[in-house]
Structure formats: structure tokens, C-alpha cells
Nucleic acid binder design. Sequence first.
DNA 1: GGTTTTTACTTGACGGATCAAGTATCGGCC
DNA 2: GGCCGATACTTGATCCGTCAAGTAAAAACC
Lengths: 170, 170
Amino acid sequence: MTRASQVQREIRQRRPFKSRAQEGTVGLLLTADRVRRFLARIVEPHGITLQQYNVLRILRGAADAGLPTLDIAERMIEEAPGITRLIERLEKKRLVRRRRCPTDRRQVLCWITTEGRDLLARLDGSMSEGDAAVMGSLGDAGVETLIRMLDDVRTRLISSPGFLATKGEH
Amino acid sequence: MTRASQVQREIRQRRPFKSRAQEGTVGLLLTADRVRRFLARIVEPHGITLQQYNVLRILRGAADAGLPTLDIAERMIEEAPGITRLIERLEKKRLVRRRRCPTDRRQVLCWITTEGRDLLARLDGSMSEGDAAVMGSLGDAGVETLIRMLDDVRTRLISSPGFLATKGEH
DNA sequence: GGTTTTTACTTGACGGATCAAGTATCGGCC
DNA sequence: GGCCGATACTTGATCCGTCAAGTAAAAACC
């Protein structure tokens, strides 16, 4: 008879979890939510959301040629179907510049502005500290193990896309 | 010189991560996003969101006396400041019933309806399969390790609430 | 027993997310 | 070179999430 798990206590759950798998899934979602909010509190005082910060990071790391809109979406940590308007809002804040691609007029190329780079520069320190704070309790070997396990989880999800056929047949 | 990590490949990142901590954090958020979408695809064909599903699960597990609105919010996996309207939408779907508490008229007590219970019953099987699919690649010992590591991450976050004082002084 | 504080929502306003449908452009194919 | 399918967004509608301010009831205080 084991004591109530930490996850259980945090969500004030009376009954024990039905399975370890369920507890793991809940723990994963719970932890990610807390981490996301923690990191959001770092960037939001600077007037951007985490998603917007993610776009700026992607553009800073991109080539000078500019990155097409949907290429940005592909690289986002969280899928972003609303990528057009997300970037629109960044353009309004003058953190991103856009221009229709001259060689393929369907595409819209995006660049980070100097203002955008400055903002990222101001955030770099706190975000590194943030990452360190998030993973700090695990130690290098622990982080390594966690990364590998999460890789496994995603691989499994990707490789079983039709696990439930419920979706296609609306 | 190690090969590009799986996380890096998935978000098409050229440069290596600045630190293992950063890679771990990104991996955690990336994985949780994929898992959340995977589970959402199970419940959404039944006309509810994952958040709404979470509320129904909480109410099914609660006592017959009914649960006050904010107690539900406290138990949610993802923090839900919009809990009132979330439950409002569930009431419109007749999956939840509400009544002002007679002994403390500030509170609004919530119950799951029979219709709500039926919906959950229809979802129980798929959701268990879903959890199993998510954690399936790790094995029992692996899930155990993952749970413990995630517990550590959250504990660290909770215990360092004032890590950045940026927020309080608006 | 009346005032202040706290609690438990509720409401309004607005930004963000999601899905479906539309438009412009490009690349192949005859 | 004209059509067809695919690509790369764009736009509209709707819902959801979030923060701030408001209201009503209970609790604490004097």
C-alpha cells in the first residue's frame, strides 16, 4: 500500500490512478503546464507571449534570406495554425518584418528586426536561468535520461498516427 | 561531436542547443503539446474539449455533495482562470448541473449529470488506450522514473516562486 | 453590531487558437 | 500554352483563455 503520489496530492485527487500510464500522462501534462506558465512570466513583462518569443528565436536562428511563414510554423514547439496572425502581431510591434518573396510570390518571407534582436538579447539571460531552474533538480545525467524518455514518447505517438480512426470519418 | 538530437530534428533547428537544460525544457514542452493534441483528438469527436473532459472527470470522482466552482479549478491539470464559463458551457450541453450552495451562498456547487456520466463511460476505454499508447514505449520502470523526474521539476518550480521578481511590480 | 477584509465567484473586454473556405501562385503534364 | 493539382498563405467565424474590475456573501475584527 503506497502513499498517495505527488501528482495526486497536487490535483487533490482522492482515488488512486487507474494505471501508472495514466499517472505518467497526467504528470507530463501537469508539469508542462507549470513550466510553460513559469517561462511565460519571464517574457510577458516584455510585451510578448511565449509563442511570439518562439517565433523570434526561430527567426534569429534563420538564414539572412528570410523564412517563409509556414516554415516558421513547422519549427514551432507548439503547433500554430494561427501563424499568419501571430506574425502579424509581431510585425505591428515592429519585431518582425515581412515581404512577399520575389521568386515565389505565394510565399511571404519573414525576418527579425533589429528591435526584435534587441528584445531577445535582453531576454537571453533570464531565459537561460529559467531553463536551468526548470531542469536544475535533475542533474546532467537526469536531464539526459528525461530527454531520451520524452523522445521515446513522441516517437511512439508519431509512429501510431491512426491509433484511433475516430477522426477522419466525421 | 554528437549527432543532432531528435528534438533538434523535429523542430528543424540548425544550431545545437545552448545547454542540456534548454534541450530538456524544449523537449518537455514539445512532448506535452503532442500528447495533448493526441488526447484531444480522442475526446473532441464527442463534442468536448480536453479541459471540459478534465472537469467531468473531476466531478465524477467528487462526493455527492457537489463541488464548488473554484475547487474544480484547483484540481485541474491546466490552470483555468476561465473556469466559470468553462462549466457554463458544460451546463449548456447538459453534462453538468449547478446550484447555489444553501449554507454558503457565495459558492456554486457543481455535479456531473447522468448524461455526463454516460459520455465519460463511452470515453473510458479510448482514454485508457490513449494513456497506454503515450507511455507504452517506456515500460513500467521507465514510467516510474519519468513520474519521479517530473515530480522533481514541479517541486523545484514551486519552491522557487520568486525566482524572478519581474511580475509582482507591475 | 457595524465596519473591514476575505472569499467566491461573475462579468466585460480583448487577445489568441482553431477550423473551414477562399485566393493567388506555381509546377507538372499533355 | 492551357489545364490540373498542389502549395502557401489569407480571411471569417467561433470558441477559448486571460486579466481586471465588480458584486455579493461570509468571516474577522473592534
